[in-house]
């Protein structure tokens, strides 16, 4: 069970939350090619290591926010508001520090 620190409600159990997938994807302009749309909609880095992702406190306050979480250890390295860039410490960590272990 993950303990997730909601930006409003503090630490709560995982089953109050839903994960909304990768953060910081930018919607392409309307004139984008099919290939660009496919990248935006479907193709993902799916890293084994650090992942920046959106979560919603669905059974709580309803807020969306971002997590920086490791996909092997599940360690949560940062919680930050939905409209913000990740904290500098996280941006400097290479996404797949784990390699293919």
């Amino acid at each position: 069970m993950l303990r997730i620190r909601c930006i409003h409600c503090g630490p709560r159990d995982e089953n109050e939350f839903v994960c909304g997938g990768t953060s910081h994807l930018t919607r392409p302009p309307l004139g984008a090619s099919d290939g660009e749309w496919a990248e935006y909609l479907f193709f993902r880095d799916n890293p084994k290591g650090l992942h920046l992702e959106r979560w919603r406190h669905a059974q709580g306050c309803g807020a969306w926010f971002n997590l920086a979480r490791h996909t092997v250890t599940h360690e949560i390295l940062a919680v930050y508001p939905i409209t913000e860039r990740p904290p500098a410490i996280v941006e400097r960590t290479p996404p797949s520090a784990e390699g293919s272990r």
Binding site: M1, L2, E14, E53, R69, T71, V72
Partner: peptide, 10 residues
């Protein structure tokens, strides 16, 4: 329903 490579269930 969250990305994982951990081979352990929640």
């Amino acid at each position: 329903l969250f990305p994982s490579y951990a081979q352990r269930g929640s």
